[in-house]
Simulated scan of single mutants.
Amino acid sequence: MATPGTQGTPKAAPTAGKAPVQKAALAVGAVFLLVGILGFIPGITTDYDKLAFAGHHSGAMLFGIFAVSVLHNVVHLLFGVAGVALHGTFNGAKWYLIGGGLVYAALWVYGLVVGRHSPANFVPFNSADNWLHLGLAAGMLALGILLGRVPSTAPHDRRHA
């Protein structure tokens, strides 16, 4: 229960007192959760009847653009849960973004090397996914590195009068 007089005030907000890197990790995690859920909604995911558990043969497309499968959607959901869970600490948020950026950079390279119809394309990926993975890698790495330099509440960051 909120302390009387705090409802609607900035201190009542769930991100009050959080460093920018923590807010970024929460936002990224929330987007991944949303995308994971949307991947299971017919209409938002076109050719939903062709949604396979995994593999390049899944014909479902999120927003009619991005190849998805049940496994792909579950990975988005798990990645979202990780972001929400790790945003609670400065280091957790920082390393979620940096680690996630490295994972997406690896997925981008994997998508370039593995053919669209190859059995090794188990998630599945298409060209739109590959470019999105590159953008996610760059964005998450930038957020983790730039916002994760020094927590704003670190004792050595405080000025004493």
Rank of each mutant, 00 (worst) to 15 (best):
A161R: 13
K50H: 10
T15A: 09
G144N: 13
V70R: 13
L147W: 07
V109L: 07
I65P: 02
L86T: 01
I37H: 03
P4C: 06
A137Y: 13
L112E: 07
G17C: 08
S152T: 09
F79R: 00
Y96F: 11
F79Q: 00
G144A: 12
A27F: 06
A138N: 11
A142L: 10
P4T: 04
T153A: 10
H133S: 01
G29H: 13
H117M: 05
A85K: 15
L78W: 04
L107Q: 04
P124M: 07
F79Y: 11
G101W: 02
D157N: 12
F125G: 02
A60D: 03
M140H: 10
R149S: 14
P14A: 11
G101D: 08
Q22N: 03
T46N: 15
G43W: 15
A52W: 15
T3E: 11
A2T: 03
D49G: 04
G139N: 07
A85D: 07
G80P: 05
G100V: 01
N73F: 09
N121R: 04
V75Q: 03
Y48R: 00
V68R: 00
L132Y: 03
K94N: 07
P119R: 09
V70G: 08
A67Y: 02
K11P: 00
N126H: 10
F53G: 14
A25W: 08
G99Y: 01
T89K: 02
F122K: 06
F40I: 14
Y110H: 06
G29C: 09
A137E: 10
P10L: 08
